[in-house]
């Protein structure tokens, strides 16, 4: 497939106008849409979806913030306004399945939208990647990560928040890497510092930044790559690695980017 074909995206509006009902809605999220680093992950995932022949569409300009930062900050009004607006859009398009690369979007859409009338089957992109690998829709042979040391940082809203620990790990294992665990991993995973709307405010006074503490722990494993599954963890860990001036040696990559790169997508 050409790069242009791999990057092809349709909006729900267009798909419906063409009389198609895509199987998946890819919920891109604010970071995935606007943040330069996260946009790369978005594109990596789009390439994988097209490569695997998944029938998907995005909401495009009809998508809005899912409301997670508002809810965690305590502004339930704003959260519910955003939620109901999004639910209106999703329901109008008859969306059944949603995939997203952001654990915050994942958590809100999956757990908090049903009470407001939005019931969908929501999966995180690492879960979709796992099933694509398991069903052979994508395969990996060797690839640039083979034999590399990788440590995976659990996003709070995927791990503890929704008990998803294995899907991302199994996807990473498929790259034939050496997966090394930090002391605080899985249910004991240490936050990157961005959740609960912290991403959008200055940290409270303390001795240290949370992301610096976490990056130090990850770097302690001497990894080639710190794998993440959340755009905010990605920013936080990237900044943390820069703090230790290790950005030359250690990369912070989303699991989707690793799969795309291993397949030369």
């Amino acid at each position: 497939m050409s790069n242009a074909e791999l990057l092809k995206v349709t909006t729900m509006a267009n798909a419906i106008a063409e009389g198609r009902q895509p199987e998946y809605l890819f919920w891109v999220g604010c970071a995935g849409s606007f943040d330069d680093r996260a946009k790369k992950v978005t594109k990596a995932l789009v390439k994988i979806l097209n490569f695997a022949g998944i029938d998907f569409a995005v909401l495009g300009t009809e998508e809005s913030c899912n409301g997670d930062p508002a809810k965690r900050a305590g502004n339930e009004f704003l959260f519910q306004m955003m939620a109901m607006q999004n639910i209106g859009t999703l329901n109008a398009y008859g969306v059944k399945k949603i995939v997203t690369a952001c654990p915050h979007c994942f958590n809100t859409l999956k757990n908090e939208y049903p009470a407001l009338g939005g019931e969908y089957e929501v999966i995180h992109h690492t879960q979709l990647l796992q099933s694509l690998l398991d069903t052979g829709k994508i395969t990996i042979e060797g690839g640039e990560f083979k034999g590399k040391r990788i440590t995976y940082h659990d996003p709070c809203y995927l791990g503890r928040g929704n008990d998803i620990y294995e899907a991302p790990r199994e996807v990473i294992q498929k790259l034939e890497v050496e997966l090394v665990e930090m002391k605080r991993s899985r249910a004991k995973g240490f936050c990157c510092g961005a959740g609960g709307a912290q991403m959008f405010k200055e940290a409270e006074p303390g001795n240290r930044e949370v992301n610096v503490e976490r990056a130090e722990e990850a770097l302690g494993q001497n990894p080639n790559v710190i794998a993440v599954g959340c755009p905010f963890c990605n920013t936080m860990m990237t900044d943390g690695v820069k703090h230790f001036e290790k950005e030359g040696e250690v990369k912070v990559l989303d699991v989707a980017e690793m799969i795309a790169q291993a397949n030369d997508l």
Partner: peptide, 18 residues
Amino acid sequence: IENNGAPWQFSPADRLNW
């Protein structure tokens, strides 16, 4: 979020620019 549908100051019209 309230005005642009995102926590940063981007226009909602640019959401699909990526």
